[in-house]
């Protein structure tokens, strides 16, 4: 299974709690950040744990995009999300055109099987 963003997310079986986003946890100060990083940005500790995060998230601001790009046929939605663990990122949203999105809506991470055969991810509105 080829992933669109191997550094950004786990599929089932790749980490406890997967699928979800890839993060780093600092056992020294408990800071959690997105992606695998070499040192904690808060305390500088270097032996970080790689963890799966972002299975649940909250929607920030979003936009309906009306210009297609590779793998995303317009119209589609994209938003800023805050993971339950704290880190923010941007993510495509699994909603239909015309959907009224609100800041604070709960979101759930989902794997997304793309037409090009690769696996990406998307956030669905609501808790599953």
């Amino acid at each position: 299974m080829e992933k669109t963003n191997p550094s950004l997310f786990f599929v089932e079986g790749e980490a406890p709690g997967a699928p979800g986003l890839k993060g780093s946890h600092c056992p020294e100060c408990q800071q959690i950040v997105l992606l695998e990083v070499a040192a904690c940005p808060k305390c500088g500790y270097r032996e970080l744990d790689t963890v799966c995060i972002g299975q649940k998230a909250t929607l920030g601001q979003s936009s309906e995009v009306l210009h297609s790009t590779e793998g995303f046929e317009a119209p589609y939605f994209i938003g800023q999300i805050e993971t339950a663990e704290g880190p923010h990122t941007f993510a495509p949203l699994d909603v239909k055109p015309g959907t009224q999105l609100r800041v604070g809506m709960p979101l759930t991470f989902k794997l997304h099987h793309r037409a090009d055969g690769r696996v990406g991810f998307i956030y669905a509105v609501g808790l599953e």
Binding site: T4, S7, L34, L35, E70, I78, R118, G120
Partner: peptide, 16 residues
Amino acid sequence: EVMSNIGLQFSALDAI
């Protein structure tokens, strides 16, 4: 690593 392949064109980022 984070922003490719998720549909995030700069115009969409600016919109957000």
